[in-house]
């Protein structure tokens, strides 16, 4: 029966997709949004199972990315309202929690464009090759390759800048012949 085959195929590939997409979402959003977006991503994978390529993770990341963008669009509306409220009625100043271990990197990434930062995350965190990044982002492999190369270069430049002001040892590395 076709339905049974479909179910069997989905049941076989879903656990790996669930784990990968959960991590992808845990790195990019809050737990509640991650739960919602995971459910929706799975639903789309189930419905479009026939379109899923053999290398299904990059494709699934692409679906999750779009679902997350949708979810965040509606969050942003709430956030704008919240921002207005906090300007009118600011909460008492609090001290930050524990410092993130690599403040310098966070700052450097923060200065990059969103597209570049996401390319680097897909490369380093999801461990995707340029061709897989291309599937996730819906661009050509060539474009992914070039953009990734440039994003790395920009991150290096940013790190050098921040490292330079902090007297970090890496500030000299780039100038070596």
């Amino acid at each position: 029966m076709k339905t049974d085959q479909r179910r069997a195929r989905f049941e076989a590939l879903a656990p790996a997709v669930i784990e990968a997409v959960r991590r992808y979402l845990a790195r990019r959003t809050d737990p509640a949004t991650a739960d919602d977006v995971l459910s929706e991503t799975l639903l789309i994978c189930w419905r479009r199972l026939d379109e899923m390529p053999a290398e299904h993770l990059p494709w699934a990341y692409g679906v999750a990315r779009n679902c997350l963008a949708n979810a965040e669009r509606s969050h942003r509306r709430q956030a704008r309202l919240f921002a207005r409220i906090s300007v009118l009625d600011p909460p008492p100043a609090t001290t930050d929690g524990p410092e993130p271990p690599d403040e310098e990197l966070a700052t450097a990434i923060g200065r990059l464009r969103d597209e570049d930062a996401e390319l680097l995350r897909l490369w380093a965190w999801e461990e995707l090759a340029p061709a897989e990044i291309a599937v996730t982002l819906g661009i050509t492999a060539n474009a992914a390759s070039i953009r990734l190369h440039r994003a790395k270069q920009r991150l290096r430049d940013e790190l050098r800048k921040t490292g330079g002001t902090a007297g970090h040892e890496e500030s000299t590395e780039g100038r070596r012949p």
Partner: peptide, 10 residues
């Protein structure tokens, strides 16, 4: 670069 980014993996 990659390992530095990985260390910052949340």
């Amino acid at each position: 670069l990659r390992s530095r980014l990985r260390n910052a993996d949340p």
